[in-house]
């Protein structure tokens, strides 16, 4: 039987609590990993490893957190903003992510805000289907 979204959220929350040393209550659906939960780059790998183990799936890092490749490509970033082409690429690579806020001002400094708890839950939900 497929896991419910709530079950997935609870397990993702446990992973983040362990990986980042948080309290349960810190982990909300719209919390951003870097801004709100204080994740650093090595934590992303830690989270990927833990998700793989927890859900018994393969999580290619560039699939869950593909922004690095986009940010390093001059076609996709111009003047500190993600270009239309870059935005299309991000959307294609991150179907599990809500872009509605980011689209209004696609500042590359805001790119970290795309990595929310709900984006991870959506990603896992997609993988388990």
């Amino acid at each position: 039987m497929a896991m419910s979204r709530d079950d997935i959220f609870n397990q993702v929350r446990d992973v983040l609590v362990d990986a980042l040393g948080l309290d349960d209550s810190d982990v909300t659906e719209d919390a951003t990993l870097m801004g709100d939960l204080g994740a650093e780059s090595i934590d992303f790998l830690d989270i990927v490893f833990r998700l793989e183990k927890e859900f018994n799936i393969k999580v290619p890092r560039e699939e869950l957190f593909p922004a690095e490749a986009v940010m390093n490509n001059p076609e996709y970033v111009s003047g500190g903003k993600v270009t239309a082409k870059g935005l299309a690429e991000l959307k294609a690579k991150m179907p599990h992510t809500d872009f509605s806020e980011f689209e209004k001002n696609p500042d590359i400094n805001k790119i970290a805000d795309l990595f929310t708890v709900s984006a991870i839950v959506n990603f896992i939900e997609g993988k388990l289907q």
């Binding site: 090595i42 790998l45 830690d46 990927v48 490893f49 793989e52 183990k53 890092r61």
Partner: peptide
């Protein structure tokens, strides 16, 4: 070794 990937290991 618990996990190992091109970028890191735990």
């Amino acid at each position: 070794i618990e996990s190992i990937a091109p970028e890191a290991a735990s």
